[in-house]
Amino acid sequence: MSDGVPTLSVRDLRTHFLTKAGAVKAVDGVSFDVAKGRILGLVGESGSGKSVTGFSIIGLVDPPGRVVGGEIRYNGANLLDLDDEAMRDLRGNRVAMIFQDPMMTLNPVLRIDTQMVETVLAHHEVDKATALARARDALGRVGIPSPEERLHAYPHQFSGGMRQRVAIAIALLNEPDLIIADEPTTALDVTIQGQILFEAQKLCRETGTAMIWITHDLAVVAGLADEICVMYAGRIVEKGTVDEVLDRPIHPYTHGLIGSVPSHNSRGRRLTQIPGMTPSLLNLPPGCAFRERCPRADEACLAEPEIAEAAAGREVRCFHPHLEAGA
């Protein structure tokens, strides 16, 4: 991959929710790197801990959740050591985030210009006119027509796709090094989704911004990401480049995930499905978390598998990986 220090390097991140019923290990020992200008797809079912990973990075895990261990190195410095003010200044400035539902992310009672200008002013000592110019510029970059006029509009005057563009424009305002996108296209129409994906990819290539794209939709990451991390029950079960993972999945879970996507090639054949449900993260039994649903599980899986290199550039957390012979 690219040389030098990665933009973001997460090591053994553990985020737990300390509830009355016990600790819910939403993220339990997650590690990955994102290099400059690269897009990492973080894939998993709902409840797999992918969103919590994103929020852990920018330090916005809501109580009772708490990052209880690990390292989040941004350009080499551990974010967990920063104080609140330093962390605040990092958010929306060096590391930006885009949320899932564009209908909910913009404050309905504030005009777009207010919501954009404040983002600039929170981090830079510039006058309002400069901030406004930047806002206009950012709106133009995400493909919003006549940005000058649209600045004075309220969120409800935009369509869903346009709102998400505004949210992306806000994320771009301070030219961040890293953007965390939490399922930003899930709530949009397919055609709009395509446009947004295209814009996102273009921006990363042009500006060298690193990006983490969180999604449950394999089709989205297939065309967008460079690398993929598949998460299951708070852990990464498989990691690799997008082509490797999608074409030759090693972990039974990834295998099942890909098998359950209907595609042109699978017409007429029965879709495979993964039996059962995501396990409760509260009191997760020891051993492999996927054991109960796994077609290959045996006694060995009662022990906990470690993530290990299975092939060149491929890491997997499984005792029975689907290697070339088995697949």
Partner: peptide, 14 residues
């Protein structure tokens, strides 16, 4: 608990 408040925090507002 609204998303837009969380988004405001993600923007780094005080």
């Amino acid at each position: 608990h609204m998303d837009y408040i969380k988004f405001a925090r993600a923007k780094g507002l005080r």
